[in-house]
C-alpha cells in the first residue's frame, strides 16, 4: 500500500444514520482528505467502531478537538503507530477492480 498516511483515528460512535455525516463534515470543512474509512457495528449494534486513516497535518489537532466535541462520538484514540494490515487488505480489494 502506498502509505503516505501515518495516523489512524479510532472512534467509538453511536450507530445511527447521520453519524458519518457529522464526522466527515468536519473534514470537508477544512478540505482535509480522508484516505480510508473502516466502520462496523459493535456490541448490540447500538454503537460502531470507526477507523479513519488520515495524513499527518497541522490541522489534525483542530479536527481531533472538533471530533471530540461531537455528541455521537463516545471515545477517540489517535494512533500514530497503527497496524498497517487493517487498511492493507482493504486496499487490495479496492485496487483489484472486481
Amino acid at each position: 500500500m502506498n502509505n503516505i498516511a501515518n495516523t489512524i483515528i479510532e472512534l467509538i460512535v453511536n450507530n445511527h444514520p447521520g453519524v458519518m455525516s457529522h464526522i466527515t463534515g468536519l473534514f470537508t470543512r477544512q478540505a482535509f482528505n480522508l484516505e480510508g474509512i473502516l466502520c462496523g457495528k459493535i456490541e448490540d449494534g447500538s454503537k460502531s467502531r470507526m477507523y479513519l486513516l488520515v495524513n499527518d497535518d497541522d490541522r489534525l489537532e483542530q479536527i481531533i478537538k472538533q471530533i471530540e466535541k461531537l455528541y455521537d462520538v463516545l471515545e477517540i484514540t489517535v494512533q500514530k503507530d497503527y497496524d498497517h494490515t487493517i487498511f492493507n487488505r482493504l486496499h487490495e480489494i479496492i485496487m483489484s477492480d472486481r
Partner: peptide
C-alpha cells in the same frame, strides 16, 4: 470553556 479554541 471550549478546548477546541486553545491554540486554534
Amino acid at each position: 470553556i471550549d478546548g477546541a479554541e486553545m491554540n486554534k
